[in-house]
């Protein structure tokens, strides 16, 4: 079919809605944030329109660099843990009878309905000394006395993985259901055990899906600011926590905006880098 160039404004009609959505929900808020990040902070007041770099200067320090580094590391770890857990799980799920699959998916969706606060509180209770899982281990005779597992890095990681896992499964599920089941069977007839075939056929065949899932969970985890507070010590607080502090408790919108812009840029940069490496790998 030959497409004709648009003749009148009406021909551009179908573009208006998506363009409007993009403008209203992305360009305007993000543009506002960039603008505010250059505004002058008034201590004891609010901020005044200006064009200053002081907000970015304050951010460029070893301290905030460390927090940013930790946030990225945490998000990457969460993404990797989620995919490592969700991939075999979702694969096995896709092999189950249809009815069981539906039950599992409904259960996973119900986890999504839990708020971050509830997840945080549930895990902080499970990890507590007084009412936590270590009490069960003590009763089973596996431990001498109950200990507190929270706050700790492990607790933060567990909470965040728990929160992101349903998303991971739901993103991987369609790809795994669509995957030709004979690929795995072929690998088996060619001498691969099922476990080996999982790694040398299924994983590489789904490389793009896995990469996309990793990026999605990474970005999802980067925005988390409640679970690190509830389950972690201050050294486990992410940049998002500090942004929230500045925006809500310090009323320092320019600095919060500068941190947020920086975080977005670093994230976009990392995603672009990942895609670039992925494309190179495909060519080779």
């Amino acid at each position: 079919m030959k497409r004709e160039a648009p003749q009148s404004i009406a021909d551009y009609g179908p573009l208006f809605f998506p363009a409007g959505m993009l403008l209203v929900f992305f360009v305007v808020p993000f543009g506002t944030m960039i603008a505010v990040s250059f505004f002058q902070r008034q201590q004891g007041g609010f901020y005044t329109p200006a064009f200053v770099f002081s907000n970015y200067e304050r951010f460029l320090s070893a301290f905030f660099g460390g927090v940013l580094g930790f946030s990225l590391m945490l998000a990457v770890t969460v993404a990797v843990c989620c995919v490592v857990l969700a991939l075999p799980f979702t694969y096995l799920l896709s092999k189950l009878p249809r009815r069981l699959q539906v039950i599992w998916l409904v259960a996973l969706l119900s986890v999504l309905s839990l708020s971050e606060v509830i997840i945080g509180f549930a895990w902080s209770t499970l990890f507590s000394r007084t009412a936590g899982i270590t009490n069960i281990l003590v009763q089973l005779g596996l431990m001498k006395q109950a200990v507190a597992l929270s706050p700790s890095f492990g607790a933060v990681l567990t909470g965040m993985v728990y929160q992101a896992l349903p998303y991971t499964v739901l993103v991987l599920y369609p790809a795994l259901v669509r995957l030709d089941p004979t690929l795995m069977e072929a690998a088996r007839t060619l001498g691969s055990s099922p476990v080996r075939a999982f790694f040398n056929v299924l994983v590489p065949a789904l490389r793009n899906t896995i990469m996309a899932t990793l990026i999605m969970v990474f970005i999802f985890a980067l925005g988390s600011y409640l679970l690190p507070q509830i389950l972690g010590r201050p050294q486990h607080w992410t940049l998002s926590v500090l942004i929230t502090d500045q925006a809500i408790y310090q009323s320092n919108m320019p600095f919060a905006a500068a941190m947020a812009v920086f975080l977005v840029l670093v994230t976009l940069g990392l995603v672009a880098l990942t895609l670039l490496i992925g494309r190179k790998g495909e060519k080779a």
């Binding site: 902070r41 201590q43 004891g44 301290f63 201050p234 050294q235 500090l242 310090q250 320092n252 600095f255």
Partner: peptide
């Protein structure tokens, strides 16, 4: 807390997070 808000906040955050 108003006149030295940013100074106190920075030192405080470094104290507990650092």
């Amino acid at each position: 807390l108003t006149s030295k808000a940013d100074f106190l906040n920075q030192k405080w955050t470094e104290l507990i997070v650092g």
